[in-house]
Nucleic acid binder design. Structure first.
Lengths: 205, 205, 205, 205
DNA sequence: GGGTAATCGAGACGGTACGTCTTGTCTTAGG
DNA sequence: CCTAAGACAAGACGTACCGTCTCGATTACCC
């Protein structure tokens, strides 16, 4: 899985065996650094090439756009989607994972780069596709698998739509993150879990 | 509230009483049209000025950036946040309102412009602030007020955090919309309402 | 003559009796000051209006262009073309007058403004015409009149073309001034007078 | 001499071996054409770039200003300063050369472009320097060399300052050209030569 | 182990848009 | 009606990047 993971967006043609791995690393590193220092929008392909000590053509040979480069750089930073922990207590496991996410998103190094890429995805379908395929879906899948085990264990209603459940849990975090109403936080995670598992409705029976 | 709503971002200095309202309308109209025809990213200030028959300076005099113009145009299109309907059945009212939202977001005229502005908000703090203040918060407030009445009527648990509840309901829609996993839909609204009100946990008692 | 002298370029229409003389003076003064401080090119109508505490319209109402304003300001500074002195020695009189000219042209306050206006005259026929009519021709005339008296006194050949003679005397100064090969100087005046009166040819008979 | 002639003003930095000569020629050609059709002032860098089918940056990469471009274009048109003819009769040679100059300056294609550049030189020191170094000085030198031979041949006084003599001969032409009193002409050349060689003073001895 | 083909750094190129500046006209209030 | 103030349409300025292109100069594979 992880072998193909980080190349879907980069399908451009030339012989990958001749690729200079030092240049590739320098480019990804420069891209992430520049996005952290300035911002996603404030980072140009020219600047990435200059910082990496690389010709612009070397970037355009292997990636279709700035978004694709930063996408891949981001993916290198966060690493592969690991499976969810399974302690037997689904709420504790979700709390752990979701809290880690809000912490990462609040990091000044990572958060703005990530939201920058999501911003770029709104106007660049290739970035949007790569974002969903490489970053979001693997993590949604890992979460849904954990929820499936919880459902089998009776911790979750038997009739729950688990894809929708993942969106119900993470949606509020992205709502805050992307609409800039207030920052996501560990405290929010607790509230969301409580509401989502107990339900908004009045106590039943 | 709605008196000040649509000018927060435009604070730039010159005497507003001398402003040419025809130019203002032509600019907002041109901005929205161009964003609909091409895309947010594909629309330039130059093009807006040309389409509106206006000098570029007239745009830069009154707005700090393209994002601010489109923001205001969008706000004109969607109109003020109306109060939620109150039929006495909170779930029916939410379904009506949330379905209208997903329909609007799925419209090819409106959806891409809206996501474009949200994308711009990720790199432009002024746009982000205007988005929250002018578009999101008024609607969040309206929804929370309806939920408050529902809580008083016993349709919602007495201890529920209603701001979080709004995020719980709308977050899943924005999750799909902005992460481009799958489009928001009326069907999603039903699923979300069912899950959010009943809760993920197993039937109690 | 000198009553109408300085208005030829300004023929624009409105009733001159209603003209505010304080504004006129402030404009001319501001124009000359700004040209001295920055340069002719670096001075804009906006800046002149601002410095003079005057609306731009007040400038455009009375003058057709920046060149016309500076032209008139310059004319105020140098004053009317005075008659040449007549000591009975034409060469001494010319030396006095021409040396005064090179001194004025070398002044950092005046020289650059003057060459700036001559530069503007190369692209603006109205300025060119005003320059010739208001600045150059009156002085050429005064000089020619002095040469006429010298011719009558036998100091100058009876068959000399005196208009050409004036150009012969002042041309070398403007050659240096406008082609920027080397600055005009008092020393140049001596050389020019010597050459022009004695002639380049070998001593006759 | 003529090898280095046409690059003095263009010292801007980039590697000249990589320069696209087709673009260079297209730019110079477009610049001269536009200046002829409209005027020097009425010609913009944008228009030159558009007419030449070239990006603006390509102009700014190799020239510091519009003046520098037109300067070089002009220099290409007039060609290198040729040596003066030497028929043994210095007055005949000067008449030939100076008449050619007044003819060129009276040409509607060339004259206004040339005066436009001289106008620009009054506000742009770089253009002024290039004008002197590339256009004026080579021709002054060629003329002075011819006068030196004439002095050796006894056609000119042994004690004449020949640099001043060149200014004496050409100054009157530029006086008319740049102060716009009346146009330079072949007839003027005759008058100037007669006056300059014979002298203004009464017949000697 | 030499030939050849692709990648590499570098950077010029034709373009587009930026945000600023100035021009000359038009509009508004005040005297 | 003239004035100061300044908004307006127009459009050029010089800069920044875009994505493509052309250069030698290394590579690295194949014969």
């Amino acid at each position: 899985m992880s072998l193909v993971r980080s190349r879907a967006i980069a399908a451009k043609a030339p012989d990958p065996t001749r690729r200079n791995q030092q240049s590739r690393q320098a480019i990804l590193r420069a891209a992430f650094e520049l996005c952290s220092e300035r911002s996603y929008e404030g980072t140009s392909v020219e600047a990435i090439a200059a910082r990496a000590g690389v010709g612009k053509q070397t970037i355009y040979r292997w990636w279709p756009s700035k978004g694709a480069v930063v996408m891949e750089a981001l993916n290198d930073v966060v690493g592969a989607a690991s499976d969810f922990p399974d302690s037997g207590d689904v709420i504790a496991d979700l709390r752990r994972q979701m809290t880690a996410v809000t912490t990462l998103l609040s990091s000044p190094d990572f958060g703005p780069v990530y939201t920058g890429v999501i911003g770029a995805a709104q106007s660049d379908p290739a970035v949007a596709e790569a974002l969903a395929a490489q970053i979001i879906n693997p993590r949604v899948d890992a979460c849904r698998k954990r929820l499936e085990r919880a459902r089998e264990a009776g911790e979750i209603r038997a009739d729950a739509d688990l894809d929708a459940a993942v969106e119900l849990l993470y949606g509020p975090i992205y709502h805050r993150l992307l609409l800039h109403t207030r920052p996501p936080s560990a405290e929010q995670v607790n509230t969301v879990l409580e509401l989502a598992f107990t339900g908004l409705g009045p106590a039943r029976a």
